[in-house]
Amino acid sequence: MVPRPFRLVGRRQDTTDTFTVLLEPTEGDPLGFVPGQFTMLSAFGVGEVPVSVSGAAHVAGPLQHTVRDVGAVTHALSRASVGDVLGVRGPYGTGWDVAHGHGKDVVFVAGGIGLAPLRPAVLEVLSHRDRYRRVVVLYGTRSPDDLLFADSLADWQGQGVELLVTVDYGPPSWAGRVGLVTTLIPRAGFDPKYTLAFVCGPEVMMRRSAMALVERGVTPDSIRVSLERNMRCGVGLCGHCQFRELFICVDGPVLSYARVAGLLGYREV
């Protein structure tokens, strides 16, 4: 329950309110994790937040977290500069089980900052590109200014990823798509019978996307979603993140849609 000190070795402003921090432990081994896991990230004296890892799991390098500045702790994190020390606990939770997609099409559906937790999974798949058939990334965000990881997206296309991007609102200069991310699902080239899909974003977006995938013919047990609840401890002790019988920090955040589809239908569970 005690955070390890990590030093900020790099920082990138991704959009007006979203930034990425690169962290290295002040001593000891780097943090091992699997794509989809999160850590509890501390700004000392302010507090702690759960943040998914957004960097590659399979290559050595600093721990990457992509954070949106929406509250007191994330604001304090946004003000940290290179050389500062932050606290890291974890990694915690379940990951994206990309290996179950071997020999299949893999489809990533990302909404907003939901692309950040998916990024390590996409990188993992691309590091073993030959084990998968088609790789599709469907990404919806608010506006062209909110697009994350633009360099990565271009790289992925170069590595044979079918990338479809859409925004909620676009200026006339935006030549891309405008519309909800779910509208990309019927257009993408994948075989629903042999597909493993990973969905991450706001819960309403994930519910709609999962429904659209099922409509296309993907079975609910071939769809993964990453649920978000108030996580304070990361190890199932504090009780905050309960989703009926699930501790989202331990049993999730990544869960099979087949497991949670019914529960997602109830309000305020």
Partner: peptide
């Protein structure tokens, strides 16, 4: 058994304490 945590710092920011406190659903 549900709990929360409070981070407490002094005014200079030189010391920090994290306390676990009972919480309620």
């Amino acid at each position: 058994f549900c709990t929360s945590v409070d981070d407490v710092g002094d005014l200079t920011g030189s010391t920090t304490e994290r306390w676990r406190v009972w919480d309620s659903c």
